[in-house]
Amino acid sequence: MSKKKRQNEPLNYSKHILPRLMFWFAVIMLFFPIISIVIYSFNDSKRITIWRGFTFNNYTKAFFDLGLREAFINSLTIAAASTVISLVLGIMSAYLLWRFRFWGRTFYGSMLSLPIVVPEICMGVSLLLFFNKVFGGISLGSSWPANLILIIIAHVTFCFPFVSMVISARINLYSFDQLEAAFDLGANEVRAFFDVVLPFLKPALIASAMLAFTLSLDDFVITFFTSGPDSVTFPVKVYSMLRFSVTPVVNAASTILIVITVLLTLGGMAVQKKVLID
């Protein structure tokens, strides 16, 4: 009812000139930079802002750039590994908070929101310091994928609290009686968890896995501080390309990353919708 009323004059502010102007200004402003990156990725020129005709060469160049390809594989490996680990830790953390009443429970629960409040740069330098002082003496090896372990640790550290929060939101809807019923019917802790609680969490698991994957894939600041010269991720590689030589190859690489993120988000939303309907 109120929705219909909103269309009535003179209250309908979407018909007023100022909101309308601001909306289109904002939309154009938000899209222009991204669209111009995509357009100039097809530019047949050494400079990014001077148009010299249409070409796909930048994409082939980006594809055959060994550094870029390596960084891309690194990014996907790190994102996959940190998603799996964050998911396991996040499930444990959410289940722990829901199932048990223990000393320091509220404290732990509120501490989990720390990664939201602590500035990324502070987390980045603290991990840099920690890895340097604690892991500095231990050689983890520079061969793939051992060189990625530190970045994976860093990513899990900021991803799993988010996973835990998403799963907590779902698990709090679950009735404790069902778990007690499972125990009464003779299930042990392991079976009750895997056969009773876990299936209920399925939509939250998918949502949080997607969240962790995109958080890890997109992260620049924390990765920037924890990556070494032989362990570079895609955003860090693009950053260093921007530092040294800005050519349309960077635009092509960026466009690939844009397409991947949008596809991942859309795919994740589709999967989630399907799960929710089931």
């Binding site: 930079p33 991204i34 111009s36 990156i37 997109d218 955003p235 960077v250 960026s254 949008v262």
Partner: peptide, 14 residues
């Protein structure tokens, strides 16, 4: 949805 780095790069080219 696009990476922060890419958005900032877009603003800098603009």
């Amino acid at each position: 949805w696009t990476n922060l780095l890419i958005r900032v790069f877009g603003v800098s080219t603009m």
